[in-house]
Each structure stands twice: as structure tokens, then as C-alpha cells.
């Protein structure tokens, strides 16, 4: 029990009202995020939320913390740069399954590898909602709800947790927008993990995937936190896609630092100095190429 919490969840919401469809799961994610920030008593000026493009990527505008609504699929590069340049900030990248796993899929892989200290929260509804309902990377191969793919895509769905584990993410969890209190607890753990933390959130799109209204009956907590990567892989072999909780948390090195968290940069460097270094590096590369 924490007796020092003084900031309320609603203090982290901006005056901008969400334009999400009523019933959208992203409301639950926004509520979970603001509850988490309040629960951790993080000052709004010490938090930055970075997003790409899509319905869920509108989230930064609805918070009172620093935000950056960027380019499609590019939330992670921006968030990574921010986390490296300002390691004192709590950096949270957000977006949807299309933004993160398709357009930004390559960035996802390498963010898992780099293990920079940030949290990546993906609101997964298995559809491109903003562009009116096309199949996304996490749509089932036989989902035929779009006229563009009347027989389904025929392509196996992207499996975010397996990919994250393969690529080296140290913190991997799944939550549900319909359980914002449990999601807030998971998100708090992700934020406090000293490295790259990936959190997939099942967030129903009631407009283009109305069948997802049944998620409440399908989702169940079931992951037991594992520290062994092999065991986590084996657990995923029987994953039904609706099990929530913390799947994997890599051991943190002695001293509390993450396994491969970027070193704190030299914040005394001048822009001119950086430009000189860059020029020297280019000259060196050119000389090597000629020789």
C-alpha cells in the first residue's frame, strides 16, 4: 500500500476528448496508462509518450505528459532516440498492431535487440481501423471481414510474443483493455523494468471486429512470470492468444542495470563537436572504401 500517491489518474488526461468510437478498447488502455502513472506517482514532465499512426496512436494527445505523434511505424526509432538522449525520462512508445508489426515491424525487431530502456505498448485489435477495416498482421489467416480479403489473407498471423522473445526482448507481457486495473499493474512493471519492455494489449475494435466484444469471456490471466527463455518459448507453444500476464522477465544484471541498456550519453557534447565527429567518420569510411 502506497501512502504517498497524490496525483490522480485524471490529472494525466488532457482537455482533448478522444474521437475513438464509443466502446473502443483504447479507452481502457488510456485509463490504464493514467492509472499507472498515478500509481507510480510520476511527474507529468518526466514522462513522454511517443506514437506512430493509427487510431491507437492518437493516445499521446489525450494525455497531459509530453507526447510525440510521429510517422507511421516509426514510434520506436523516435522513442529509442529519446530514451538514449534523456535517460532520466520515462519513455513509452504506443501504437497499434499494423503500425508496430507491419509498417514498423523491422523497428520492432531491432528495438527488442537493442534493449534500450523504454516501454512499448501495442494496442492489438487485429485490424486496420483508421482506414476502415482491412486485415492487419495479427488478423487470423481466415478472417474474411474485409471486402479486400473476402476469403481471408491466407497468411499466418504475426505472433508478437514469440517474435519479441526470439528478437531478445527482456520483458514480455500481454494485457487486456477490459481489465484496466490489472493492465495498469503490468504496465507499472514494464515501466520499472530496466530495459526494453514489450506489452501487447488486446484492445477490441467494436466497429470493424464486433466479435471482439466477446473478449471479456475469452481472456483469462494465466501466464506465470518466467525467467528462463527456453521455458518461455515452450509456454508459448500452447498459447491461445487470450492468456494475459507477465510471460517473461529476463534477469537483471547485478547492480540493477539492464542487460544491455545504452550507456548514459555525454550530455555536455556540443552540436559542433558531434558534427566534427560525423564528418571524421564519413572521411574515414570513404578512405577505407577507396583503399
Amino acid at each position: 500500500m502506497n501512502t504517498a500517491v497524490v496525483i490522480r489518474p485524471k490529472d494525466y488526461k488532457s482537455a482533448t476528448k478522444p474521437v475513438w468510437c464509443p466502446g473502443c478498447g483504447d479507452f481502457g488502455v488510456l485509463n490504464a496508462l493514467t492509472k499507472t502513472l498515478a500509481g507510480l506517482a510520476l511527474a507529468p514532465a518526466q514522462v513522454a509518450v511517443v506514437s506512430g499512426i493509427g487510431c491507437s496512436s492518437r493516445l499521446p494527445a489525450y494525455t497531459s505528459v509530453y507526447g510525440f505523434h510521429g510517422v507511421h511505424g516509426r514510434a520506436l526509432p523516435v522513442a529509442t532516440g529519446l530514451a538514449v538522449a534523456r535517460p532520466d525520462l520515462t519513455v513509452i512508445a504506443t501504437g497499434g498492431d499494423g503500425d508496430g508489426f507491419s509498417i514498423g515491424g523491422n523497428h520492432f525487431l531491432h528495438a527488442c535487440r537493442r534493449n534500450v530502456n523504454l516501454t512499448y505498448l501495442v494496442m492489438d485489435n487485429a485490424v486496420y481501423g483508421m482506414t476502415k477495416g482491412q486485415a492487419s498482421p495479427t488478423s487470423a489467416a481466415d478472417w474474411a471481414g474485409s471486402k479486400l480479403t473476402p476469403d481471408g489473407t491466407g497468411i499466418a498471423a504475426f505472433r508478437p510474443l514469440e517474435i519479441a522473445l526470439s528478437a531478445g526482448a527482456g520483458f514480455i507481457a500481454r494485457g487486456f483493455s477490459g481489465d484496466p486495473n490489472a493492465l495498469a499493474g503490468l504496465l507499472a512493471e514494464a515501466i520499472e523494468y530496466p530495459g526494453f519492455a514489450f506489452l501487447q494489449v488486446l484492445s477490441p475494435c467494436i466497429t470493424y471486429r464486433p466479435e471482439q466484444m466477446e473478449y471479456k469471456a475469452l481472456v483469462a490471466a494465466g501466464f506465470e512470470p518466467l525467467a528462463d527463455r527456453n521455458a518461455a518459448f515452450r509456454r508459448l507453444l500452447t498459447d491461445d492468444g487470450f492468456t494475459t500476464g507477465l510471460l517473461y522477465r529476463a534477469p537483471v544484471a547485478a547492480g540493477g542495470s539492464a542487460l544491455a541498456t545504452a550507456a548514459t550519453p555525454d550530455d555536455t557534447a556540443s552540436l559542433a563537436g558531434i558534427a566534427r565527429e560525423f564528418t571524421a567518420a564519413r572521411l574515414h569510411a570513404a578512405n577505407e572504401h577507396e583503399s
Binding site: M1, N2, T3, A4, K35, G39, N181, G185
Partner: peptide, 11 residues
């Protein structure tokens, strides 16, 4: 009143 974190409530 105790200040509970959101995940500490027992609903």
C-alpha cells in the same frame, strides 16, 4: 483514507 494504487484495490 489509505492511498491505494489502482492494482491494489480488491474489486
Amino acid at each position: 483514507l489509505p492511498a491505494l494504487r489502482p492494482w491494489e484495490f480488491a474489486w
